[in-house]
């Protein structure tokens, strides 16, 4: 791979989460009111289109209409907004957004604040498609132009942030070329490509 590895994955940097100093509310209870006011301004005041999009994505997963979602859904929401975080990055975001009183859930106001910040700063943006292609080329050591099912499964299950069996099955179901049984990755990339909406 030509570029430095870190560039490919995106550096795991401290500022992935807002440094506490930047948070409109502090950690302490005294800042709580300030925060509430802030969030009230955001929710009650004018919402940007981005905010609305985030809210809408959030609401899809807010089954109880209580303005909260389960922490487990957060990754899906952020990804559905076009971001491309790793599991580890999701984890970091979670730490920042999770509701402290009722652990296991995330409140809309807080989520909105942090996620819109992340998106505006264009963090977690997907690497370019070329990089993705490069990644496949790295795996395709012999330059055959395709990967075998076994090899890709092995890599996906054992390397990086491994897939679950369900994820793997879904991926293989869509990626494998019915005739050859292999994965012609240049075609497959097109499927993963989504028009950027940000």
């Amino acid at each position: 791979m030509g570029s430095s590895p870190d560039e490919v994955i995106g550096l795991f940097s401290v500022d992935l989460i807002l440094p506490a100093a930047l948070w409109p509310w502090g950690d302490s209870a005294s800042n709580r009111n300030e925060y509430q006011e802030y969030s009230w301004n955001i929710l009650g005041g004018t919402l940007s289109d981005l905010d609305k999009r985030i809210i809408e994505a959030f609401v899809v997963f807010d089954h109880a209409s209580s303005n909260t979602v389960d922490v487990r859904e957060v990754g899906t929401i952020i990804r559905s907004l076009g971001c491309c975080p790793s599991e580890a990055e999701i984890q970091e975001i979670l730490v920042a957004v999770e509701d402290e009183e009722t652990s296991g859930s995330v409140r809309l106001d807080r989520f909105l604040l942090i996620v819109s910040h992340i998106i505006q700063e264009r963090r977690l943006q997907p690497a370019s498609p070329e990089k993705l292609l490069k990644a496949f080329l790295t795996l395709d050591r012999d330059g055959k132009g395709y990967l075998t099912k076994e090899f890709l499964s092995k890599i996906m299950m054992e390397e990086g942030e491994p897939f679950t069996h369900e994820e793997l099955d879904e991926m293989m179901g869509a990626a494998i070329d019915g005739e050859t049984g292999n994965i012609p990755y240049e075609y497959y990339i097109n499927q993963l490509m989504v028009r950027s909406e940000l």
Partner: peptide
């Protein structure tokens, strides 16, 4: 190994995003 791993991570990231979008469609 490291390179493979990073390539894998990249692919996984993209794939998970793809999956998330499908999930949202399913949900709505």
């Amino acid at each position: 190994c490291r390179r493979t791993m990073k390539a894998a991570i990249l692919i996984q990231r993209w794939y998970r995003r793809y999956l998330a979008r499908m999930e949202v469609r399913r949900r709505y």
